[in-house]
Amino acid sequence: MALIETLDTGFGAWNPLLWLVALVVALLIAWLIRSRGESARPSGAESAKPYLSGNDAPSAEETHVGASNLYWGFTDALKGYYDRVVPIHSGILTDYVLWFIGVLALVIIMAGVL
């Protein structure tokens, strides 16, 4: 038995060893490209500072892009979906029970009781 066997999915196969070899090769290429760059940059010089049209750079806290600023386009595009789904998650226990009873009714029908 090979140490790292090929995973048989019934339709295809997946060998982690081959993937790892490919990953190492890709990392090697990345390292080679990186090593061709400048080894050092001027420190303390004006060119090392961020340039914001002559304005002072904001503090570290302010430059970090917060989680809410990410994927707004995705949620905006699916606004119609979110406007319906988010309110369902009301946090109200009786709402949860209603959904539960609704699914129970559905399963009773699907199971062939009615």
Binding site: S59, A60, E61, T63, H64, V65, G66, A67, L70, Y71, F74
Partner: peptide
């Protein structure tokens, strides 16, 4: 995509005061 957001939000960015 969701976990890229989490990774960025928690670990990336400059060290905070």
């Amino acid at each position: 995509a969701s976990f890229v957001k989490v990774f960025h939000a928690i670990f990336m960015g400059p060290r905070q005061e």
